[in-house]
Simulated assay, not measured.
Amino acid sequence: MELPISPPLSPMLAKAVKTMPKGDLLYEPKWDGFRCVVFRDGDEVELSSRGEKPLTRYFPELVEAVKRELPERCVVDGEIVLRKGAQLDFDALQQRIHPAASRVELLAAETPASFVAFDLLAVGDESLMEVPLGERRRRLAETLAGARAPVHVTPVSDSYDLALRWFDEFEGAGLDGVIAKPRDIPYLPDKRALFKVKHERTADCVVAGFRWHKSGPIVGSLLLGLYNAEGHLQHVGVAGSFTMRRRAELVDELQPYRMDDLEGHPWEGWARQTEATADRMPGAISRWTGKKDLSWVAIRPELVVEVAYEAMQGDRFRHMARFRRWRTDRTPGSCTYEQLEVPVAYDLDDIFEGDAQSPRADRGA
């Protein structure tokens, strides 16, 4: 592969901010998928992940789309996403990473992915790494003007007000925020030179177990549950990101609630799992965890904790939740799904086809 930029390449990153920034910025929706830098040199195509690992073998349908829709020789930064109906589905996207070639081929046909382009790093023999973002964006829109699904160019705008609208509306299509990019910066691999604004909400959850930290006998994460409509305590994710001192304190705080016998615990059956399950319950093995120790310690489901989370994916938190405080004023039975905010549905086609944009927002900016 002979290109001005050779794989692998660490993509430019974004740092989290609490509020939408203002200034000489370009705003884009934040897609919820796998970051991917596409390298194409004729019939040679490589899909490179954020961690510089190859994704090529897992998405054969995108390899063919790249050959069909992208320039003969180019490097394009973007996101691999997977849609189900009118929304993105990150869980289904994760299932696409499978070791068996036959399974990869089947999933490529049953749940095909899309590629959303948002930066042009090279075309032909020309590297655009030192070119300001605004010009790269103009060149991207020009170069991919005729691209067809499953290749898309992300919407972009210099309107702060429209970015706020996107932040509120696009979550209903499965997107998870807005990215703000300084117009004049070059492409800076592995540097957090961009800004991301993501949703943050709180929920009161039941703590029904914990995992030990990899470094020793301190708490690694809390296992969280919410009661569903049938009255069952559904595992919804974990809370972590504690300081080492706080992890040690949690051992003492949880000690009175530890159970030596799992009989009667709502997750009793899950402790005996030996294979991955669709519900990804505590202790489940998956392709993502590999040989990681996922054993857990059950506690009586009597403690309630307030956590911060970004979004839901199905019946679980999309990412790790963050501990806020114990809620001694709440009863476990009051911790139900009904407390959660549900985004208004939004159709992905309106984003891909540009119907969500104003006169100041277009594919080229």
Rank of each mutant, 00 (worst) to 15 (best):
D41V: 01
P29H: 07
P186N: 08
D252I: 00
T328H: 12
V305N: 02
E263Q: 13
P11Y: 13
T289D: 13
A365D: 05
R96H: 09
D161F: 08
V251K: 01
Q273K: 12
Q255E: 15
P282F: 06
I80E: 03
A108K: 06
S49E: 05
A109F: 03
I185C: 05
A298W: 09
E2M: 06
D190T: 01
D176E: 15
L294E: 13
D204S: 14
E105C: 04
L162W: 08
G240C: 06
F90T: 01
L62I: 05
V307A: 10
Y257D: 10
A145R: 15
L3E: 01
L121Q: 05
L144Q: 11
V38K: 02
L233E: 09
D252N: 13
L107K: 03
D261H: 12
R136T: 02
R201F: 15
V131W: 00
V81D: 02
W31S: 06
D349A: 12
R68C: 07
W31K: 08
G172L: 00
G240K: 12
M20L: 14
E44W: 09
K198M: 10
L107A: 05
I285N: 13
G225V: 07
I179Q: 00
R57D: 06
Y309D: 02
I285L: 15
W288C: 00
T274A: 14
T154L: 05
V206R: 00
G220P: 08
R300I: 00
P343V: 00
L175R: 03
R40W: 04
D260F: 10
A109R: 15
P150H: 04
H235G: 07
G231M: 10
V307G: 05
P359K: 12
D260T: 11
R318K: 15
A208I: 08
D119L: 06
L25R: 04
D329F: 02
P282E: 07
Q357N: 11
E275C: 13
L233H: 07
Q313K: 14
V219L: 06
A345L: 08
S157V: 00
E263T: 13
D24F: 04
C335L: 00
R137G: 05
R73V: 01
A180V: 02
V197M: 06
K191A: 09
R40F: 06
S221Y: 06
A100Q: 14
P150V: 02
L70S: 02
R318F: 14
L226R: 13
